[in-house]
Computed example of a mutant assay.
Amino acid sequence: MRLFAIADLHIGHKLNRECLYQLTQHPDDGLIICGDVGEKLDHLRTVFELTTQLFKQVWWVPGNHELYTLPTEKLGPRGEQKYRECVSLANEFGVLTPEDEYVRWDGDGGPCIVAPIFTLYDYSFRPDDVKREDALNWAAQTDIVATDEMLLHPDPYPSRDAWCDALVDGTIPRLEKAATLGLPLIIVNHWPLRQDLVKLVKIPRFSLWCGTKRTEDWHTRFNAKVVVSGHLHIRRTDHIDGVRFEEVSLGYPRQWEDARNRGKNINDLLREILPGPAYKGNEPTRWRPLG
């Protein structure tokens, strides 16, 4: 009984949506869907309906794209309401979310506690000499602005920063409680927990929209065995303080084109979280463009 993960399916793209149907049966395994399935509830419905038929248990955490209110849906749900509607849909399919109790994993690599969380970001992944009020201008100097600024509304909070603070404040006691159970945690979040994992060579100032410094020590503070994330569209494995960090994005079609050209499909790009690879100690970053 293995635990797999994938993020950033972006099934609004036709090719990604088609590749989804190549997923094979895993009747004894679990699957973590680590955010950015798509922008519409119908995207989530498609993925939940399929994956819950293929896997024994499915987990989902939101990414920024699930929280979008598209221009064609100006009167649609915004901010927290959009998130709550996504959670309600997940509940219909028995998909576990950050709103559910964390559950114990007794399959291969266990026992562990699987802890899906939702933190958003607060623009703090920036140089120390850049003030918060200057952050967006700092990014704009290199023509970087996230679509979130137009489509991800923080309602009912006054800002995304404030929503992030509320989410982090609410998550800490839950992780503290889970950590007292004496089992290691599998922490699952769409956004990376640490700024040093955000290495975007072509668009470095996009880091503003990639997390919060408030989570930097959570891997040790809450006894994590593995931390799973997406968002960056750069598949990689890191070990920090003896904890394995897995970036498990599929990404936009152009970003996994090389894998397709080499005969890979979505099954090859599922990342095995548990039991996972053996840790040999002092391992450098492993870049995984092909799986």
Rank of each mutant, 00 (worst) to 15 (best):
L9M: 05
H10N: 10
H10A: 07
H10K: 10
I11P: 10
I11F: 05
G12C: 02
H13D: 12
K14N: 07
K14C: 02
K14L: 10
L15R: 08
L15N: 12
L15G: 12
N16H: 02
R17K: 14
R17Y: 03
E18Q: 13
E18C: 05
E18V: 08
C19W: 06
C19S: 10
Y21R: 13
Y21H: 12
Y21I: 01
Q22L: 12
L23N: 06
L23M: 05
T24A: 09
Q25E: 13
Q25T: 08
H26M: 05
H26D: 02
P27S: 05
P27F: 02
D28N: 07
D29P: 13
D29N: 06
G30A: 15
L31Q: 11
I33D: 00
C34G: 15
C34Q: 07
G35K: 05
G35Y: 09
G35A: 05
D36Q: 06
D36N: 11
D36L: 04
V37P: 06
G38V: 13
E39W: 04
E39R: 12
E39K: 11
L41V: 01
D42R: 11
H43Q: 09
L44I: 01
T46F: 02
V47F: 08
F48N: 07
E49H: 12
L50N: 14
L50G: 14
T51P: 13
T52M: 02
Q53H: 15
L54K: 15
F55Q: 03
F55I: 00
K56P: 03
K56N: 13
K56Y: 09
Q57R: 15
V58G: 04
V58Q: 04
V58N: 10
W59I: 13
W59C: 07
W59M: 11
W60F: 15
W60K: 01
V61R: 03
V61P: 01
P62Q: 10
N64S: 12
H65Q: 09
H65Y: 02
L67M: 15
L67T: 02
L67N: 08
Y68Q: 12
L70Y: 04
E73M: 06
K74W: 08
L75I: 04
L75Q: 14
P77A: 13
P77W: 02
R78P: 04
R78I: 13
E80P: 00
E80H: 09
Q81E: 15
K82W: 07
K82A: 10
K82R: 15
Y83C: 02
Y83Q: 08
Y83R: 15
E85C: 02
E85K: 14
E85R: 14
C86S: 14
C86G: 10
S88H: 09
S88A: 15
S88W: 02
A90V: 04
A90F: 08
N91S: 13
F93C: 01
F93M: 00
G94I: 09
V95D: 11
L96A: 12
L96C: 07
D100T: 01
D100F: 06
D100H: 14
R104M: 08
R104P: 00
D106P: 00
D106F: 00
G107W: 08
D108C: 07
D108N: 14
D108K: 10
G109L: 06
G109Y: 08
P111T: 13
P111F: 07
C112V: 15
I113E: 00
I113H: 01
V114T: 11
P116Q: 05
P116Y: 04
P116F: 05
F118L: 13
F118D: 10
T119W: 02
T119C: 14
